[in-house]
Design a protein around this nucleic acid. Structure first.
Length: 494
RNA sequence: GUCCCCAUCGUCUAGUCAGGUCCAGGACACCGGCCUUUCACGCCGGCAACACCGGUUCAAAUCCGGUUGGGGACGCCA
């Protein structure tokens, strides 16, 4: 039994987007499941478009997701000699040929075919040049590319796909594709196969947009006399208008770093991504890493494409609602000491972190984030909606201010009076603060909610939150008293 | 234009390979109710889909054919 070897080969022409991330995830899962290896290969043969920054972005994206690789990153350009050697070998064996058609000619033909609604493929003009003709053109210094010579065969060319089943097409449908540019540089179709052979890749999991590439690459494996790996073409992720997701047309919303920067929990995002095109066959949707590796199979990958249901400019659903829901689930159910470091990062970035939260006040810190996480949606909420727990310069939202404070001008007397009673308390805990609040409400003959909601507003700045009496001890007596005594500042001076 | 792939609630999907247990199950979203000091917390309930037409069969979401629709590919990009 040979080891399974998978690869993730991004081209560094932009950031890592969710389609690529999902492909990486599927490869990673399968490698883990089979006890195999995942190889990262940067396919940078398009030197025009490849950038250093993009490579960094891809690496960071994978690291954030927790998708680890066992080998690499390899760089495709480091193996140019291999690629060229393979092309030359094919040329010598008569499995490829030189083509002298100029780019302009080809473009013109393609253009003409397109407008005439004719077939687009290469017309094989140079396929039957005699060795003398080739030599002559070479001697004349004419530039040429090397094309693969698609065999003239009857019957169908095909392969068995792990998710799609048997894929076939007629040999005549396949163009003589270019494997070497006129500048001598090899092209994707060839490089990719040569590298996969060298890296002993056993399984290729990639998007369905590669299906026609696979058909042609099957020919290359044969010509290079290498065994065919297992192919699994996973469905594409489409946008809400059903077109392929791309960096160019969708921007940040499809970038992995967008989710990192919007407070997603990495594993929660993986959990969301895996469900976009795969399901375990039962009702389970939340998986630990171990559970997912165990449950994942190629056979259960969907055949039809999935829509990434993102929204834009919606304060509540700024991306696919299901992604947010899964993130919320993890946010409120994960072990608090696993969550703590993530919250710490957020607080640090917002300048709200205090080292004592990791020392003497660690219990307070853990208890606090445990208390407030139930109503949060992303890690960002700890520093926005939850700012009042960590700082005094929080914003009091207008809605609760109108509804819970400004409607009751007498609160300017009531709350400071309540503060005085709180100051007298022997213990400042949930039971005592509640008792005193209710007592006072009864004396004043008002609903307890008036005092409680007013407190919620001036103490947390928010309309909603955990039980107010759980909150008070967490914020601490001193800060609570200061905040409720200062209620008059919300009323216009009279 | 050619080739390839796909087709179940708004979205992600289960069910299709081994036809009956499916007047189609779950999740998210939405709507309603409950809880309550509040809430985009929690709990309960509801709405909502087999693209269409034929065929096979006692029986079809499931098998076959066609239609329509969608997607992908057709580069000296990857």
């Amino acid at each position: 039994m040979t080891e399974t070897r998978l690869r993730f080969p991004p081209s560094p022409t932009g950031y890592l987007h969710i389609g690529g991330a999902r492909t990486a995830l599927y490869n990673w899962l399968y490698a883990k499941k089979t006890g195999g290896k995942l190889i990262l290969r940067i396919e940078d043969t398009d030197t025009e478009r490849s950038t250093e920054e993009s490579i960094r972005g891809i690496l960071e994206g994978l690291e954030w997701l927790g998708i680890t690789y066992d080998e690499g990153p390899y760089f495709q350009t480091d193996f140019t000699a291999d690629h060229v050697a393979a092309a030359e070998r094919l040329l010598e064996q008569g499995l490829a040929y030189r083509c002298f058609c100029s780019k302009d000619e080809l473009d013109a033909k393609r253009e003409a075919a397109l407008t005439a609604k004719q077939n687009l493929g290469y017309d094989r003009t140079c396929r039957h040049l005699t060795p003398e003709q080739v030599a002559g053109k070479m001697a004349a210094g004419l530039p040429s590319v090397v094309r693969f010579k698609v065999p003239d065969r009857q019957g169908m060319l095909g392969y068995d796909d792990k998710v799609l089943g048997r894929i076939e097409c007629d040999y005549r449908e396949v163009d003589d594709f270019v494997i070497l540019r006129s500048n001598g540089k090899p092209l994707y179709l060839l490089c990719n196969v040569v590298d996969d052979i060298r890296d002993r890749i056993t399984h290729i999991i990639r998007g369905q947009d590669h299906m026609t590439n696979t058909t042609r690459q099957v020919l290359l494996y044969e010509a290079l006399q290498a065994p065919l790996p297992v192919f699994a073409h996973i469905p594409l992720t489409l946008d809400t208008k059903k077109s392929k997701i791309s960096k160019r047309s969708h921007g940040e919303i499809v970038a992995v770093h967008f989710y990192r920067d919007h407070g997603f929990i990495p594993w929660a995002f993986n959990n969301f991504l895996v469900l976009l095109g795969w399901s375990p066959g039962n009702d389970q949707e939340i998986f630990s890493k171990e559970e997912l590796i165990e449950a994942f199979t190629l056979e259960r990958i969907n055949r039809s494409s999935a829509i990434f249901n993102f929204r834009r400019d919606d304060p509540k659903f700024f991306t696919d609602p299901k992604a947010i829901a899964i993130n919320e689930h993890y946010l409120r159910t994960m072990a608090i000491d696993e969550l703590a470091p993530m919250v710490q990062k957020e607080l640090e970035a917002a300048g709200l972190w205090d080292d004592s939260y990791a020392g003497g006040r660690r219990d307070w810190f853990l208890h606090t984030i445990d208390l407030i996480r139930d109503r949060f949606h992303t890690l960002k909420d700890f520093t926005s909606l939850g700012r009042a727990y960590f700082a005094d310069d929080f914003t009091v939202e207008d809605k609760p201010l109108q509804k819970n404070v400004l409607k009751f001008p007498e609160l300017t007397n009531w709350l400071p009076a309540l503060a005085d009673r709180y100051a007298q308390l022997a213990v400042f805990d949930a039971i005592e603060t509640e008792r005193v609040s209710r007592e006072m409400a009864e004396e004043l003959d008002i609903k307890p909610g008036v005092l409680i909601n007013a407190m919620r507003t001036v103490v947390t700045g928010q309309l909603a939150g955990p039980s107010m009496f759980e909150i008070l001890p967490v914020i601490g007596r001193d800060r609570v008293l200061a905040r409720i005594r200062d209620i008059a500042r919300f009323f216009p001076a009279s």
